[in-house]
């Protein structure tokens, strides 16, 4: 081993930051950059843990002033009632303004057609894109993380979208240092991912550290579910179970929260944050692998949806 100008290994300096503090500081910096450079930013807020984390970070970034952004929820019409209740309570508690883009309204108006498999996740793209155009949002915060999915691993923190919200992975701006380039033409917007560098475990550790409240479905509870393609889905008006699918009561929790038609529950007895963290650290499956039917469609399912303007 050849070493020049040796620094003693493992030396602890007084000015160290924990990994959670580093990630928090980075996310806050990103929120403030957007507040400083954009006119009409909006946070995509689904009531899922990643968007709850984003909102918590935004509240901290601008305290004691209010968050200078509104919220946008793309409601598939198949959302978990517990999550919608949480969403509305959170909005009221912090005095926020919420826009809702409704997939159901698009279907009712004949502008979107229900898919044969009943999954509404891919249908969110059009209402999302039109809401962005209608409200002239120029920065749209998403809770996407690079560890979630291999197409997301190539995503920038500031990701330019054209007027059709399309993502072109081969024409992304190189992102250097902490210099985020948010320049865009009228009609274009920038998707911003402040928690790009967080892993699922980081999110849970931070939620525990900060004492952030989550919807109850993230913790183990008894639920009537049925099995479809190896995933436990909740019975409901959205179109399940079919005749041959047997409903049973199991102790489950959700690792991700999305559209009921394609978000699976996992068998779990993790009733507390501590239990959840232990369970995730020991899990041999990624959260999307375990719980998202839409990502199993093909090797490039996420990339294709992202290109079309998906989150």
């Amino acid at each position: 081993m050849s070493t020049v100008a040796t620094v003693p290994e493992g030396t602890v300096h007084p000015y160290a930051l924990s990994h959670l503090d580093s990630l928090e500081s980075e996310a806050v910096h990103i929120f403030r950059e957007v507040a400083g450079e954009f006119e009409r930013p909006v946070i995509l807020f689904s009531g899922g843990k990643d968007s709850i984390l984003m909102l918590h970070l935004a509240l901290k970034a601008f305290a004691p002033a209010p968050v200078p952004f509104t919220l946008l929820h793309v409601d598939t019409g198949h959302n978990f009632p517990e999550v919608l209740e949480y969403r509305d309570r959170t909005v009221a508690e912090h005095g926020l303004r919420l826009h809702v883009a409704s997939v159901q309204e698009y279907i009712d108006a004949g502008k979107l057609r229900e898919r044969p498999d009943g999954t509404r996740n891919p249908l969110q793209t059009v209402p999302l894109t039109e809401a962005i155009q209608q409200h002239r949002f120029d920065a749209v915060f998403g809770g996407g993380r690079r560890d979630e999915e291999k197409a997301r691993a190539k995503e920038r923190v500031f990701s330019l979208r054209d007027e059709f919200s399309q993502w072109d992975p081969r024409r992304q701006r190189p992102e250097l240092w902490q210099l985020y380039n948010g320049r865009h033409a009228p009609g274009e917007h920038v998707r911003v991912f402040p928690i790009s560098n967080w892993t699922e475990l980081d999110v849970w550790q931070y939620i525990e550290r900060e004492g952030i409240e989550l919807p109850g479905i993230y913790f183990a509870h008894e639920r009537e579910v049925f099995n479809r393609s190896g995933m436990w889905l909740t019975a409901g008006d959205w179109g399940g179970p079919k005749e041959h699918e047997k409903v049973e009561t199991r102790q489950v929790r959700y690792r991700t929260v999305g559209d009921m038609s394609c978000t699976g529950a996992v068998d779990s007895d993790a009733t507390t944050l501590d239990d959840v963290i232990t369970e995730i650290a020991a899990s041999r499956l990624t959260e999307r692998g375990a719980t998202r039917a839409d990502d199993k469609m093909s090797e490039a399912a996420m990339e294709d949806r992202k290109r079309e303007g998906y989150f």
Binding site: H19, E149, P169, T199, L201, D202, E303
Partner: peptide
């Protein structure tokens, strides 16, 4: 193929872009 996330990368067997990967040990992230 773990790191080559884009369709074009997998088709061409090359890495086009910087890929960010995350891992942890008990001592460090």
């Amino acid at each position: 193929l773990l790191t080559d996330g884009l369709r074009a990368e997998r088709e061409q067997g090359i890495t086009i872009d910087v890929a960010y990967r995350y891992f942890a040990t008990p001592r460090r992230r």
